[in-house]
């Protein structure tokens, strides 16, 4: 591992984004607009918005970073830059952590903006503090990045990479407790939701929104999230092969 290469990679990824201001605008503005739309659809039911709003703050980063990362990584593969990098003195983890660092930074900005808009403009009412919302969103973004890096190994084209969103992410969305509380699901579905990482991001954010400070349940959820992130990054590093056919 080499901090210089990790930081240089993160800087490079952010510079690529800087040359693509439309993507940055979409990444930052779309979540805020969706939250505004949600709060208007729940006009007259503030309790419902207070329950679902925070969950969306945990879901956006995962969904968005998953797509962005899997496409970015696939481009590295198809453009030959990955082959060039792997022929250089670069540890695979340096590359993956560089991506995680860049998209994590972006996620903090995205979550800060979306939380600020929700709390101050849309009258989202939570017991906990905004800081925990942002932290959860960051972990969710890192999870999205790690899963996206992993998924890109199984895609040969950008079309396939984009299709992984409905394949991998939508089932998690259905089972994460956004639509039906997980305890209220059929026991088989609940068991499945227990092994899906997004469930823990959503549980954690609901928990820190509803309580002052960090509850034991929330720390457990954070622990599971971190384990998923580390696991996905390790598997992702395993799929990067220096020698290919």
């Amino acid at each position: 591992m080499n901090a210089r290469i990790t930081v240089a990679t993160a800087g490079r990824v952010l510079t690529q984004l800087r040359h693509d201001p439309r993507t940055i605008a979409l990444l930052l503005v779309v979540p805020c607009l969706l939250l505004a739309l949600l709060s208007w659809t729940f006009d007259g039911q503030p309790a419902a918005f207070d329950r679902i709003g925070p969950m969306l703050l945990a879901i956006f980063p995962l969904v968005v970073m998953f797509v962005v990362t899997s496409v970015a990584m696939l481009r590295e593969r198809t453009s030959g830059t990955l082959e060039r990098l792997l022929a250089m003195p670069l540890n695979k983890l340096d590359l993956l952590l560089g991506y995680a660092l860049a998209f994590g930074a972006l996620a903090v900005v995205q979550a800060g903006l979306a939380s600020g808009v929700s709390l101050w403009l849309l009258d989202l009412d939570i017991v906990g503090s905004a800081g925990w919302l942002v932290l959860t969103a960051l972990l969710s973004a890192l999870l999205g990045t790690a899963l996206g890096l992993l998924a890109s190994a199984f895609a040969q084209t950008e079309f396939q990479a984009v299709q992984f969103l409905p394949a991998f992410v939508l089932p998690q969305l259905l089972l994460c407790g956004l639509f039906v509380p997980r305890e209220a699901m059929h026991s088989v579905l609940e068991a499945i939701s227990n092994v899906l990482p997004l469930s823990y991001a959503v549980d954690a954010i609901a928990e820190v929104a509803a309580n002052r400070g960090l509850s034991g349940q929330a720390s457990l959820d954070y622990g599971v999230l971190v384990a998923f992130i580390v696991g996905a990054l390790a598997l992702g590093a395993g799929t990067l092969r220096r020698r290919t056919a």
Binding site: G11, Q16, H19, T81, P89
Partner: peptide, 27 residues
């Protein structure tokens, strides 16, 4: 030093940004 047959550089970076990055990677 290795040059692949198809140019393998980042098309969404400038010439100097590309080379700065690769310079950082190889030290």
């Amino acid at each position: 030093g290795y040059v692949t047959q198809a140019p393998s550089v980042y098309t969404d970076l400038t010439v100097r940004e590309n080379l700065r990055y690769f310079a950082a990677v190889i030290g």
